[in-house]
Amino acid sequence: MAHSSFVARRRALQLAAGLGVYAALARQSGAATRDLTPEEFAGRTWSEDLSQAEATLRYQAYYTHQLRRPYAPARLASLPDLALVKAFDDLFRIVFHTADQDVARHLLQVHALLRQRGLGTPAQLQGCYDACYYARLFAPAAQLALRFPGQLETSPPIHVAADAGIAVPTLIRLASGRRELYATRYPIPQRPAVIMIGDAGCHFSRAATDALARDAALMRRFDGALQLLAPHALRLRFDAYAQWNADHPALPMAIAYHWRGWSMLDVRSTPVFYFFNGGKVRHVAAGWRDDTARAGVVAGLDAIGL
C-alpha cells in the first residue's frame, strides 16, 4: 500500500474513532503478518474482516513479536530521531486498535525521550493524553494535564464504581448539569432488553432515535428496556453527549467504559440494535437509512417477546 494511501486511511480511522465506526480489519492472526512492516501490516489487515476481539488479538500479537523488543526502553536511546518518531506512530496505532494499557505506557516512554531531544510536538502530547485516557490509565493522563496546563484538550474524570471496570460490562453515565462522569456496572439482564449502539455525531443514530421518539406504539413495546450505548472511542466528546442527552431526555445515551467489557457486542458501527433475552443476544438489527429500518427493530422485539 502506498504511504499516502495509508496516511489517508489512518486519518479516516482517527475520525472514525470519534464517530464510533471502525474500518474492517483482518480475519486471521497468523504468524505471517508478524514479519511485515507496520505499514504493510496495516495494509494487509485493512482489507479483511474480523470482530473487534479478533482485531485486538492480531494487533497485540504484532506488537509482541515485532515492536516491543526493537522499541524496548533500553534501546530507545540508540534510535535516530526519525526512528524514534516512527516508534511513536507505530505504538500509537497499536493503542488505537487495542486500548492496551501496557502499550500506552510504552508510548509514554517514547514520548518522554522525544521531548528530551526537543522533538515532541503538540499532536504527540495530545496523543499521549488520549491514549492514556482511552486505555483508562487515569493517573498518567491527569499527570500530563498537570504538567502541561492549557496545552491539552482534556476529558472529565471518570468515577468508577468498585464492581465496574474494563473486564465487565460497564456504562459511563453523564451527571446532569455537571461535567462529571460515573462508570457503573451494567449486568446483562435475563429479562428481554435492547441495547442500541449509537453515537452523538452519527446522522443515522440521530435519525433512528428521532424515529423511535415519534413512534409511541414502538416505544411502548420497548417498555423501558432500551439502553443507548455509545462506543468506547479514542476521544470522549463530553459536550456532544451532554447535548444529546439534553435534546433526547427520553432516550439518553451512556458510553461504553471499555470495549472489552462488551465482548458480546461489536461496538464499532452505529446504529446497531442488539436484542437480549436470557442474558444472550437473540437478534441484531443494523443501520437506519430510513424508516424502513423499523421492520428490523420490530422483528427483534418479536424475537425476544417484547
Rank of each mutant, 00 (worst) to 15 (best):
M1Q: 15
M1D: 08
A2G: 08
A2K: 12
S4G: 11
F6L: 08
V7K: 06
R10W: 09
Q14W: 01
A16T: 05
A17C: 10
G18E: 04
L19S: 07
L19C: 13
A26P: 07
R27Q: 09
A32N: 07
R34G: 08
D35A: 12
L36E: 10
T37K: 13
E40Y: 05
A42S: 12
R44M: 14
W46V: 09
S47N: 14
S51M: 03
E54K: 06
Y71T: 03
Y71V: 01
A77Y: 08
A77S: 04
S78T: 14
L79H: 01
P80F: 06
D81R: 13
D81T: 02
A83K: 12
L84E: 04
K86I: 15
D90V: 03
D100S: 09
V103N: 00
V103W: 00
A104C: 03
L107N: 01
V110A: 15
L113S: 06
L114D: 08
A123L: 15
A123P: 13
Q124E: 11
C128K: 01
Y133H: 15
Y134H: 12
F138H: 08
F138G: 05
A141E: 01
A145G: 02
R147K: 08
Q151E: 10
E153C: 14
D163G: 05
A167M: 13
A167T: 09
V168W: 03
P169E: 02
I172S: 01
I172F: 07
G177L: 02
R178E: 13
R179G: 04
R179K: 12
Y182P: 05
Y186E: 06
P187L: 07
I188H: 03
I188A: 13
R191E: 15
G201K: 02
C202G: 01
H203P: 05
T209P: 03
A211C: 03
A213I: 14
A217L: 05
M219Q: 08
R221T: 12
D223P: 13
A230K: 00
R235K: 14
D239H: 10
A240G: 09
Y241E: 05
Y241V: 10
A242V: 14
W244H: 02
N245F: 01
A246T: 12
P249Q: 10
L251H: 14
L251F: 09
P252C: 02
M253L: 14
A254H: 02
A256K: 04
M264S: 15
L265D: 00
V267W: 00
F273S: 00
N277T: 14
G279I: 05
G279S: 04
K280T: 11
V281R: 00
R282C: 15
H283S: 10
H283Y: 12
V284P: 04
A286V: 14
T292N: 11
R294A: 04
G296W: 10
G296E: 09
A299Q: 07
L301P: 03
L301H: 04
L301G: 11
D302N: 12
